[in-house]
């Protein structure tokens, strides 16, 4: 699972911090820090946090391009 928070939108309401404190954390008064690849056991809490965010700033999904392969010129579909 990967997450990204659109911090232009985030207004530091901290709902996510209450719902998944191991993943989201306020750094100072309103700067949000988060773990971009939370462990599987946090998945449910992360989904709840994303749903609760009043500005819908949290995007949850599988890692983009995980099927892309790596290495020089790797050509994977």
């Amino acid at each position: 699972m990967q997450i990204v928070v659109d911090l232009n939108r985030c207004e530091g309401y901290a709902q996510c911090v209450f719902l998944a404190p191991k993943v989201f954390e306020l750094h100072g008064e309103e700067a949000l820090l988060y773990a971009p690849a939370p462990p599987a056991e946090q998945a449910e809490r992360v989904r709840r946090a994303a749903a609760a965010c009043p500005v819908q700033a949290i995007l949850v999904g599988e890692q983009a391009g995980a099927d892309a392969g790596t290495g020089a010129g790797a050509d994977v579909r």
Partner: peptide, 14 residues
């Protein structure tokens, strides 16, 4: 990494 919004069915040359 970034979360995908959807599948892109692309050829990746990385």
């Amino acid at each position: 990494g970034l979360p995908a919004r959807r599948q892109v069915d692309a050829r990746w040359k990385l």
